[in-house]
């Protein structure tokens, strides 16, 4: 260790300890996060507090040429799926064929939220790939997104007749998950 007594103009120590303190604090946060994850917390799954709660209030402007505005009121009365997408989202293109099939089957309405996108790009994307959405709301400023706790697009929420969130898929909905988890849930909720 160093000799504290000899140097009269000893430099202040705290600036040199500061980086270590910052790293230790960050390390603590990371460690807590990891222990949360190994304790069964999945960062991609919506916090359980939101599950079984009403979808947060929103009122999103319409996409020109694609119907009216999308509001929380639309979610009432029928089981529906909210899908968050964007023309910039490569994974959404992968998910898209399944959404088209669902839309074609008429199983339930799919409400699209065009997240952080420019209207002309959203429209171009829909023209290019096809439109599976019953209604579309634009959310360029993440107004509804934050309330829904979305981490990344695509994300989807299954909403029951009362407008309560019943299920969430972070990322692409796989056919397996659709068949084995979501469809049975829809059947149950539609009773």
């Amino acid at each position: 260790m160093t000799d504290h007594a000899t140097s009269p103009a000893r430099p202040r120590r705290w600036p040199y300890i500061l980086p270590l303190a910052v790293v230790l604090a960050l390390g603590g946060v990371f460690a807590k996060r990891l222990s949360d994850i190994s304790g069964g917390y999945d960062p991609l799954v919506i916090p359980t507090v939101l599950l079984s709660t009403p979808a947060p209030e929103f009122d999103l402007p319409p996409l020109p040429g694609y119907g009216d505005a999308l509001t929380t009121a639309d979610l009432k009365g029928k089981v529906s799926l909210i899908n968050i997408w964007g023309s910039w989202c490569a994974a959404c293109t992968v998910e898209h064929p399944l959404l088209m099939e669902i839309a074609k089957s008429g199983e339930l309405p799919i409400y699209g939220i065009a997240w952080r996108d420019q209207p002309d790009r959203s429209i171009a994307w829909l023209e290019r790939h096809g439109n599976p959405y019953t209604k579309i709301g634009q959310d360029p400023k993440s107004q509804a997104i934050i309330g829904l706790g979305v981490v990344a697009a695509p994300e989807s929420f299954l909403i029951d007749k009362e407008g309560i969130i019943r299920y969430k898929v972070a990322g692409i909905i796989t056919r397996e998950e659709w068949r084995e988890k979501i469809q049975p849930l829809i059947a149950e909720l539609s009773k």
Binding site: T2, P11, R12, R13, Y16, I17, P19, L20, V23, G27
Partner: peptide, 17 residues
Amino acid sequence: GIAIGGSLTLYAIRAPQ
């Protein structure tokens, strides 16, 4: 933690001189 924390501890001890 060992790499960054260790080196910064060493830094806190030695760098002031």
